[in-house]
Simulated assay, not measured.
Amino acid sequence: MSSPIFARIQSSRTADDIVGQIETLILEGVLRVGDRLPGERDLSVQFDVSRPILRNALKLLETKGLLVTRHGGGTFVADVIGEVFSKPMMDLISSHRKAAADYLEYRREIESVAAEYAARRATEDDRLMLHRIMTAMEEAYKANDFKREAELDVELHNAIGECAHNIILLHTLRSCYRLLADDVFYNRTVIYGFPGAREKLLDQHKAIFAAIINSNPTAARAAVGQHIDFIEQAQSEAARSSAWQNVSRLRRNQRESERG
Rank of each mutant, 00 (worst) to 15 (best):
M90N: 12
E151N: 02
F185I: 06
D35C: 04
Y192E: 00
E105Y: 09
R178K: 14
Q46V: 11
D102K: 09
G196F: 02
N246A: 14
A136Y: 02
A101I: 07
T189P: 00
A219Q: 10
Q226N: 08
L179F: 12
K200W: 04
E139M: 08
D79P: 01
R178H: 11
G34Y: 15
H157G: 03
P217V: 15
L37Y: 11
G39A: 13
L37M: 15
N216T: 09
R8G: 02
G20C: 06
F6W: 02
M134P: 00
V30T: 06
H96W: 12
I160D: 00
P38I: 14
R127K: 12
L169T: 02
R178A: 09
T75P: 02
F76W: 14
D91P: 01
S94M: 07
A118M: 04
I213D: 13
H71Y: 10
P52C: 02
R41I: 12
A197I: 07
Q10Y: 10
L31D: 03
A100G: 10
L37R: 13
D183G: 05
P195V: 05
F194E: 01
E139F: 01
G34N: 11
V49I: 13
H165I: 05
R255H: 11
Y117R: 09
L180R: 10
L92S: 10
V49M: 14
Q21M: 04
E232L: 14
E109Q: 12
Q21Y: 08
I26A: 08
A234D: 10
S11E: 08
I22H: 06
H71E: 13
G20Q: 07
F85P: 00
L54I: 03
D42C: 07
R13D: 06
T75Y: 04
A243Q: 13
F6N: 00
A238M: 02
T172L: 10
G74H: 15
P88T: 04
A181F: 10
D145G: 09
I231E: 05
I228W: 13
Q245V: 15
K142S: 10
Y177F: 11
A239R: 13
I81M: 05
F194P: 05
N144E: 13
L180E: 04
D102G: 03
S112T: 14
Y103V: 03
V154I: 11
R198D: 00
F209E: 11
P52I: 06
T123M: 00
V84L: 15
C176G: 01
C163L: 08
L156Y: 12
G73C: 12
D102E: 10
N216Y: 08
G196P: 09
V49Q: 02
R32L: 15
E237T: 10
Y103L: 06
Y106V: 03
I110G: 02
D125Q: 06
H71F: 08
E40M: 13
L92D: 12
H227A: 07
R240A: 05
F146V: 06
S257W: 05
A99P: 01
R55P: 01
R70G: 03
F146R: 15
V184Q: 10
A118H: 01
A115T: 05
V113N: 07
I213Q: 15
G82E: 00
Y103C: 05
